[in-house]
Design a protein around this nucleic acid. Structure first.
Length: 136
DNA sequence: GCCAACGTTGGC
DNA sequence: GCCAACGTTGGC
């Protein structure tokens, strides 16, 4: 099982929206690196941090789980873009803000916090995953 | 709202 | 295949 972090703008689709929907498809990813993760590496049962970008507070706000592996958004004969389905697992009582992540020795190394890192689907190490849970 | 850092596009 | 111009992301 692997760990990931998905970004979403809270005013576009928030953790509360996912909580309401229970399950959603994660589509609209138009970046090849992220696409490759969706297509090749993200498996059923993988755990995913839900991160709110571009909205206050900037924070990891909860967890979801992959329930359907990468499948084409359109044209299965010649697929370009892929999506996965995720289900709601939990919403954190207290969001783990960027500030908090910056101050922790382990989480400060996360791809999310590296300068210029814009990837909206990112791998998270087991160590980072557990550290975030501890911070919560 | 600004702008740095990326990613993509398209003329050559 | 290079690279300038343009578009987007996302923190600040």
């Amino acid at each position: 099982m692997k760990y990931w972090l998905f970004k979403s703008e809270a005013d576009v689709y928030s953790i509360d929206d996912l909580k309401r929907d229970r399950v959603t498809f994660w589509d609209g990813i138009r970046n090849y690196q992220a696409r490759n993760f969706l297509r090749d590496q993200i498996k059923k049962g993988d755990q995913v941090f839900f991160y709110h970008s571009n909205s206050e507070p900037l924070a990891i706000v909860g967890i979801c789980e992959v329930v359907k592996e990468g499948y084409p958004e359109s044209d299965p004969q010649k697929p370009t873009w892929f999506m996965v389905d995720v289900k709601f697992v939990k919403k954190f009582k207290n969001p783990i803000t960027r500030d908090i992540l910056q101050k922790n020795k382990i989480t400060q190394k996360m791809m999310l916090l590296q300068k210029g890192s814009r990837l909206s689907i990112q791998p998270v190490t087991k160590e980072e995953w557990e550290s975030v849970l501890k911070l919560e």
